[in-house]
């Protein structure tokens, strides 16, 4: 069980995929996408972990201890804010869809069905 962090990230992605394929409510679809995004962020951060490392901050850092990689953390910070922005946009679209159609069921909104 050395890779428990990767397993947790993949389980989060799996839970989000289950929500995407088995739910119809648009809000639940948005929640599923957010869970997938959390899993991907956790995967990225855990890829940069060094065994026994501390956070890459030199304020009162214990000397002689390795530090985890800073670049995945910085890029994950960017990804989190972009995910927040897309979640806000998704929720606004859901509000407008509910206002115009009176339903949140994805199966009943059929204009774009191929």
């Amino acid at each position: 069980m050395g890779n428990f962090a990767f397993l947790a990230a993949m389980l989060l992605v799996g839970i989000g995929l289950w929500a995407l394929v088995s739910r119809r409510n648009l809000i639940k679809l948005a929640i599923g996408l957010s869970i997938i995004q959390s899993g991907v962020n956790l995967f990225l951060v855990s890829l940069g972990y060094v065994r026994g490392g501390v956070a890459p901050i030199y304020t009162y850092a214990p000397p002689g201890v390795p530090m985890v990689l800073p670049t995945p953390q910085a890029l994950t910070l960017t990804a989190i804010v972009i995910g927040l922005a897309t979640t806000a946009l998704m929720l606004a679209f859901i509000v407008v869809i509910y206002r115009h159609r009176g339903t949140l069921d994805a199966g009943k909104i059929r204009e774009l069905k191929g």
Binding site: V81, L84, A85, A88, L91, A92, V95, V96, Y98, R99
Partner: peptide, 22 residues
């Protein structure tokens, strides 16, 4: 920038996110 952006998103969803508007 972030506090203004996220604060205005929260405010807009709370003000105009109701069913009756529009």
């Amino acid at each position: 920038k972030v506090l203004a952006g996220l604060g205005s998103v929260v405010l807009l969803l709370a003000l105009f996110g109701g069913k009756e508007d529009g």
